[in-house]
């Protein structure tokens, strides 16, 4: 079993978001970066579990510049065998998908796993693009994944529904909550990660489809309107007459 896990670098979930260069760039000053939670907790950990029970290899891939090394090492410390970094700062999802598809094509992975979406751009499109570029089946929003011969048995959570399906490998799967439990790297993993191979490859394209022009922060919320527990009725009235939400 040969598994590729796509990991992206995102600001820590508690980061206060701000922008620089006339609101055209995310302000990275003092920001702590982590592996995108969906990629790490669900996609990567499930891949490692499969490798442990079924034998195989787990490679992680990241499209990004040298300062992404830190999150790549974390993935290796968690147990990935090796890593690939495509050395470019991707401007959009299309670039990311193109680079990953170009690398993966001759490698014939059984499963390509991604997270459901990144927590900074919240797009959730890279996996579907990779699937299309490689002409592979694609299942999004997978919350459970098991191997059954040449097939995967997948559970998906979609709007108010759970769906189970069977998909033949090779395929691309987008992972969400439920697929695995987050792990913490142990000392042995951390030591081993220092000597695991990270292959750096050059990008194949600089074509982009979508440009981020500018960013803005939402307007400040006004002060909260407080009601006393003795006047709950007034809150109900306010929701009905003022906010008009029911």
């Amino acid at each position: 079993m040969k598994i590729l896990v796509c990991i992206s670098k995102v600001p820590d979930t508690t980061t206060k978001i701000s922008f620089t260069d006339n609101n055209s760039k995310f302000n990275e000053d003092k920001v702590q970066f982590i592996i995108n939670p969906y990629d790490e907790w669900y996609a990567l950990v499930r891949a490692l579990e499969l490798k442990e029970t079924l034998d195989g290899t787990v490679t992680v891939i990241n499209v990004g510049k040298a300062d992404n090394e830190q999150i790549i090492r974390k993935a290796l410390a968690l147990g990935a065998d090796d890593a690939v970094r495509v050395d470019t700062d991707p401007a959009d999802a299309f670039t990311v998908a193109n680079e990953i598809a170009a690398y993966a094509k001759p490698e014939n992975y059984d499963i390509i796993l991604t997270g459901k979406e990144t927590i900074n751009y919240n797009s959730g499109v890279v996996a579907g693009m990779i699937a299309e570029l490689l002409d592979l089946p694609y299942v999004s929003l997978a919350s459970k994944l098991d191997v059954d011969g040449n097939n995967l048995k997948i559970e998906r959570e979609i709007e108010g529904m759970k769906e189970t399906l069977k998909v033949a490998m090779p395929c691309v799967i987008g992972a969400q909550k439920g697929m695995a439990e987050a792990r913490i790297p142990n000392m042995r993993g951390i030591l081993a990660s220092k000597t695991k191979p990270v292959k750096i490859i050059a990008p194949i394209t600089n074509e982009i489809h979508v440009q981020s022009v500018s960013f803005s922060l939402p307007p400040e919320k006004g002060a909260v309107k407080l009601f006393s527990p003795d006047n709950v009725k007034d809150l109900a009235e306010a929701l009905h007459n003022e906010a008009k939400v029911f």
Partner: peptide, 10 residues
Amino acid sequence: VFSGKATAQL
């Protein structure tokens, strides 16, 4: 973007 903490113009 940023999980509702900002808006981007694309």
